[in-house]
């Protein structure tokens, strides 16, 4: 039996090009809407698979506005059993405050494993899992692409977690409870079934006021960098194109 809490974040859905609102503060989602970060979706899938094998339950937790309950229900539809919403007014919380609020919410709740996505799709801070682990006094590994629960005497004793780094696998062994952040590719998340979706709709979501935190990091604004337009550039034709081609290959660093 493993009690798992997966933390997810409500992030904008975007297409090929991203729009910023006229005040320059937010991504314009009027044509796209919101979703859960891809790494986090994989974290939920991982948790559900673990509990399907070993028993236990999966709680999904988010810090966000009331609408973030929608993202929680999407995760409940994948098989998570409980939803917890740390409800904010929608303002952006920095990583310090977020991690502190999460730590306060999960402390002493008996979770064996605290899962995160490696970084949120919008802010890409990489900090919340580590800061949360620190606040809770737990060990933490990040960037994980493979996860196994190792057995103790009837109870899970620990985990073996691995990730790639420069062509090699780094393997970590940790005792539980622990904090792990995973990366997309650790599994292929399932699609929600109809019954799953209907159960998620009926499920209760616990709404809690998050403990207020302090961040020294404030968002000043968003700027979409100018990208060159896509297109094919003709280097030349026949033998005349060779110098330009060689120059390009050299630039790419593929020449010996």
């Amino acid at each position: 039996m493993v009690e798992i809490c997966v933390c997810v974040k409500r992030v904008p859905m975007v297409g090929g090009s991203i729009l910023v609102t006229p005040d320059g503060l937010d991504v314009d989602v009027s044509m796209s809407g919101f979703t859960v970060s891809p790494h986090e979706e994989c974290a939920v899938e991982e948790a559900v698979q673990i509990t399907e094998r070993l028993g236990g339950s999966v709680t999904v937790l988010t810090l966000g506005p009331a609408e973030a309950a929608g993202q929680l229900r999407d995760m409940l539809a994948l098989g998570a059993g409980r939803g917890v919403l740390l409800e904010t007014d929608g303002a952006e919380w920095g990583p310090v405050a977020t991690a502190a609020a999460i730590a306060d919410a999960v402390r002493d709740r008996g979770f064996d494993l605290l899962l995160f996505g490696n970084e949120a799709a919008d802010t890409g801070g990489y900090q919340v899992p580590v800061r949360a682990a620190h606040a809770l006094g737990l060990q933490c590994v990040t960037g994980i692409k493979q996860l196994q629960i190792t057995a103790g005497d009837g109870d899970p004793a620990g985990i073996v977690a691995s990730r790639e780094y420069r062509g090699a696998d780094e393997v970590f062994k940790l005792p539980l409870p622990a904090v792990v952040s995973v990366k997309e590719g650790i599994n292929l998340p399932r699609y929600p079934s109809l019954p799953g979706r209907l159960r998620a709709k009926r499920a209760t979501i616990d709404t809690i006021e998050p403990s207020a935190g302090k961040d020294r990091l404030h968002k000043a604004g968003l700027r979409v960098p100018v990208t060159s337009s896509k297109g094919a550039q003709v280097l030349g034709s026949g033998a005349e194109a060779v110098p330009a081609l060689v120059g390009l290959l050299d630039e790419l660093g593929v020449l010996p």
Partner: peptide
């Protein structure tokens, strides 16, 4: 407010699903 091809997540006429409306 129909997105352009670049802005669209899927295509300009395939807009994000609003779950509650379909439940």
């Amino acid at each position: 407010s129909i997105p352009s091809i670049e802005q669209a997540v899927l295509s300009p006429t395939e807009l994000p699903f609003t779950q509650d409306d379909f439940d």
